[in-house]
Amino acid sequence: MRNSVPDLELDAYLRLNRASLAEWLAAIRELSGCDDIDCTLFEGSGHQVGALSTLSTERGRLICLYAAEGMEITGCRATAPVFLLPRAGNPEIATRDAPWQSLNQLVLAWPEDRFRLRLPSEASVLILRLEPGKSAPLVPDFSDAGLSKCEELITCYLHRSPFFRDDAHAIRVTNELFLNLTRSAEQSAHICQCPKLDRRLLRAIEKIRYEPGWEFNLQELASHSGVSERNLYYLMKRETGMTPYRLYQRNRLMRVRQRLVDCQCDVPHISWYAADAGFSHLGRFAALYREHFGELPSETVQWRRNLQDQWAGAELPSVPEPLPYSSAAEP
């Protein structure tokens, strides 16, 4: 049985899940650097707004928004070029005073644009924000062909992201992505190589990801996949860059991270969560956690606490009346 965290891009860098509107708004403002962003829920929406994951590097930041409830996000002013890529559902976008349009492919928003996003329930959008001064400038007349190549590069990156070996590898590959987004299509053509995973390998990966109670056994995993142990090992190493056990270990760490992100208790039971995931030595677990996610388990918890403390005494905008949802495709 799958856990309560939705399928989310960069799920190893989950920051917020099952958040209230106030938490959601505070997180978006902090991560985007735009204090006047606002969010309005659609009519009939509940109180658990959604989830988000984020990965920052010296060249830029990726933010994946998942809307558990339908919402409209306004006041998004880019301080640097921003790419927006739909990943699930039927999100919509409006730039400046233009009408709503379906966000069905990669869109590039410029600093002078002030865009709005409309996300129906279970929609997801990936936002890639270039870090000012850290990447080569994009030309203002960025072509459709250039955007098509950028979308291909981002899709290939997302194909690789579940198999980041650790945080250092994730940072390196992400920096390469931002660098290639600023290059011409010809310069980046050799970068995009995303073959489909072998179906036998997919069976092994799904077992590791979606059976949290399963204890690692290479012989059992190979039998489940329909290959020999030796072939499974080399198949996974060749196509993902990871060994079966490394992938298993990383997914156990991700389950602990998901519980820490959701933790609302005064004293998070990090040792309990670690033990439940099969980590018996807390010091070794903490070292592995930092190796994979770039921070200690306590820092994961503290990020959400800081978010709550930061906005606890601040006056957030009053929540407007819910919006009736209507698609841009409707007359």
Rank of each mutant, 00 (worst) to 15 (best):
residue 20 S to N: 14
residue 70 G to V: 01
residue 82 V to S: 01
residue 241 G to H: 09
residue 229 E to S: 15
residue 14 L to D: 04
residue 130 L to R: 07
residue 279 F to N: 04
residue 177 L to P: 06
residue 222 A to M: 06
residue 60 G to W: 07
residue 52 L to M: 12
residue 212 P to L: 11
residue 292 H to C: 15
residue 167 D to I: 04
residue 54 T to F: 03
residue 311 W to M: 12
residue 13 Y to T: 02
residue 227 V to T: 14
residue 327 S to M: 07
residue 224 H to E: 11
residue 72 E to M: 14
residue 308 Q to Y: 01
residue 269 H to P: 10
residue 293 F to M: 09
residue 216 F to Q: 11
residue 328 A to Y: 01
residue 247 L to N: 01
residue 16 L to D: 06
residue 106 L to N: 04
residue 165 R to D: 01
residue 136 A to G: 07
residue 261 V to M: 08
residue 278 G to F: 09
residue 259 R to S: 07
residue 304 R to M: 08
residue 282 L to E: 03
residue 82 V to T: 10
residue 240 T to I: 00
residue 229 E to A: 14
residue 138 L to P: 00
residue 23 E to F: 00
residue 113 D to I: 03
residue 297 P to K: 04
residue 74 T to W: 05
residue 306 N to F: 02
residue 136 A to Q: 15
residue 165 R to F: 08
residue 254 M to H: 02
residue 140 P to K: 07
residue 306 N to E: 13
residue 295 E to V: 04
residue 228 S to N: 11
residue 289 Y to Q: 05
residue 81 P to L: 04
residue 139 V to N: 09
residue 251 N to V: 11
residue 116 R to D: 11
residue 279 F to M: 01
residue 282 L to T: 00
residue 290 R to G: 00
residue 31 L to G: 03
residue 93 I to F: 12
residue 258 Q to H: 11
residue 269 H to M: 13
residue 312 A to W: 06
residue 145 A to W: 08
residue 22 A to F: 05
residue 188 S to Y: 07
residue 159 H to Q: 14
residue 149 K to Q: 11
residue 12 A to W: 05
residue 148 S to E: 10
residue 156 C to N: 15
residue 141 D to V: 03
residue 13 Y to M: 13
residue 99 P to E: 13
residue 96 R to S: 14
residue 270 I to A: 05
residue 12 A to V: 09
residue 315 E to N: 11
residue 8 L to I: 15
residue 68 A to I: 08
residue 244 P to T: 02
residue 150 C to F: 07
residue 61 R to A: 06
residue 1 M to C: 12
residue 284 R to P: 03
residue 249 Q to G: 05
residue 181 L to S: 02
residue 294 G to K: 04
residue 258 Q to C: 11
residue 179 L to T: 06
residue 156 C to P: 03
residue 31 L to N: 04
residue 313 G to D: 15
residue 217 N to S: 15
residue 145 A to V: 09
residue 148 S to V: 02
residue 240 T to S: 03
residue 114 R to E: 11
residue 140 P to D: 04
residue 290 R to L: 05
residue 19 A to L: 10
residue 254 M to L: 14
residue 304 R to E: 02
residue 275 A to Q: 13
residue 190 H to V: 14
residue 296 L to I: 06
residue 278 G to Q: 02
residue 198 D to T: 04
residue 150 C to P: 02
residue 208 I to H: 02
residue 207 K to T: 12
residue 143 S to I: 00
residue 320 P to S: 10
residue 176 E to F: 06
residue 40 T to M: 10
residue 2 R to F: 13
residue 266 D to K: 03
residue 145 A to F: 12
residue 195 P to L: 01
residue 75 G to A: 07
residue 83 F to S: 04
residue 208 I to Q: 01
residue 257 R to N: 11
residue 204 A to R: 09
residue 67 A to C: 07
residue 240 T to Q: 01
residue 135 S to H: 01
residue 241 G to A: 07
residue 312 A to V: 09
residue 168 A to S: 12
residue 29 R to A: 02
